[in-house]
C-alpha cells in the first residue's frame, strides 16, 4: 500500500499562488497610482509642497515596489541572488558618476538591465526596486523612483525573452521603447514629489518647456521623453556589449539565457555541448 501521507505535504502550490497574487497586487498598486495621479494632476501641483499627490505618489509606488520584491525575491536561484548586489553597485557607481556631470542622462540602470537580460523579467523587476531601496541609504531622493526602476527591469527582461537581444541593432530599439514607458511613469514622481528634476541639465530642459507655458507635469513628461529613451537606448547597447563579451562558462550559470535563446548564435546548450565533447574525445 503506497500512502501519499508518508511524505510531507508539498508547500509549493499555495506559496506560488500567494506570490503570484502579490506580484499582481504590486503591479496594480503601481498602475492605479499612476492613473490616479494623471487624472487628478492639475488642481494641486502648485498648491505647495505637502500636497496630497506627493504622498499618494510616494506611498502607492513604494508599496507596489515592496510587494514586487516580496513576491519575486524568494523564487530567485542563488546564482541570480548573488548578482543582485553586484548590479546594485554597478547602478550606483555608474549612476553617481553620470548624475554629477552636465549630461541630461542618468545611466543608472546598467546593472538592472544586465540582470534582466541574464535572469529574466521577474529578477529584473526585483533588482530595479531593490536598487532604489538600497541606494536610498546614500541618496534618499531615489526612493520614490523604485516603481519606475522595477518597470525598466521587467521590460528589459521581456525584451530579452522575446529575442530582441539576438540582433545587435534591436537592443537600442528595445531600450528606446522601454525609456518612453519608464519616462512617462516616472514623470509624476519628479513633478509631485520633487517639483522638478534633480539634475541641472535635465532641469534646463524642463525650464525650456515651462518657458513655453506648459504645466509642470507636462514639462517634466516631455523632458523625460527626451532624456529617457536615449538614456535607455545607450544602457541597452552597453548591456548587449557586456553580455556578448561574457565567456561561455559564465553564461552557462543562467538557465534563462539558454531556455529562451536570448543571445544570437547560441543554440541550446545541450546541442552545442555534445559535438564539443565528441571532438574532445576524438583527439
Amino acid at each position: 500500500m503506497s500512502s501519499p501521507s508518508l511524505t510531507l505535504p508539498s508547500q509549493e502550490r499555495p506559496a506560488a499562488r500567494r506570490r503570484r497574487l502579490l506580484e499582481i497586487l504590486g503591479a496594480l498598486a503601481i498602475a492605479a497610482t499612476y492613473v490616479y495621479l494623471v487624472l487628478n494632476q492639475p488642481s494641486d501641483i502648485t498648491g505647495g509642497p505637502g500636497s496630497a499627490s506627493a504622498l499618494i505618489a510616494l506611498s502607492g509606488f513604494l508599496a507596489g515596489a515592496v510587494l514586487l520584491i516580496v513576491a519575486v525575491l524568494p523564487t530567485l536561484p542563488a546564482s541570480t541572488l548573488v548578482l543582485i548586489p553586484v548590479a546594485l553597485v554597478l547602478n550606483i557607481v555608474l549612476g553617481q558618476f553620470v548624475g554629477s556631470t552636465l549630461v541630461p542622462f542618468y545611466l543608472d540602470a546598467i546593472g538592472t538591465v544586465l540582470i534582466a537580460v541574464l535572469a529574466g523579467p521577474a529578477a529584473g523587476a526585483a533588482t530595479g526596486a531593490l536598487s532604489s531601496i538600497v541606494w536610498s541609504f546614500f541618496n534618499p531622493t531615489v526612493l520614490p523612483f523604485a516603481a519606475g526602476a522595477a518597470l525598466i527591469g521587467c521590460l528589459a527582461g521581456l525584451a530579452a525573452r522575446y529575442g530582441l537581444f539576438r540582433r545587435f541593432y534591436l537592443a537600442p530599439v528595445a531600450g528606446f521603447v522601454t525609456g518612453i514607458i519608464a519616462g512617462v511613469v516616472s514623470a509624476p514622481v519628479a513633478a509631485f514629489v520633487f517639483g522638478g528634476t534633480s539634475g541641472v541639465a535635465t532641469g534646463a530642459i524642463v525650464s525650456a518647456f515651462r518657458a513655453m507655458g506648459d504645466t509642470l507635469l507636462a514639462a517634466i513628461t516631455k523632458q523625460a521623453l527626451i532624456s529617457d529613451p536615449m538614456d535607455k537606448a545607450i544602457v541597452f547597447t552597453i548591456v548587449a556589449i557586456l553580455v556578448y563579451a561574457l565567456p561561455r562558462r559564465a553564461r552557462q550559470q543562467f538557465p534563462f539565457l539558454r531556455r529562451h535563446r536570448v543571445l544570437a548564435g547560441k543554440a541550446p546548450a545541450a546541442t552545442t555541448e555534445a559535438p564539443a565533447q565528441g571532438a574532445a574525445r576524438d583527439n
Binding site: S100, P140, G196, S207
Partner: peptide, 14 residues
Amino acid sequence: AILVPLSLSLVMLH
C-alpha cells in the same frame, strides 16, 4: 552632493 544640484535645478526652473 544631493541637494546642491537639486536646489540649483529647482531655483532655475521655478
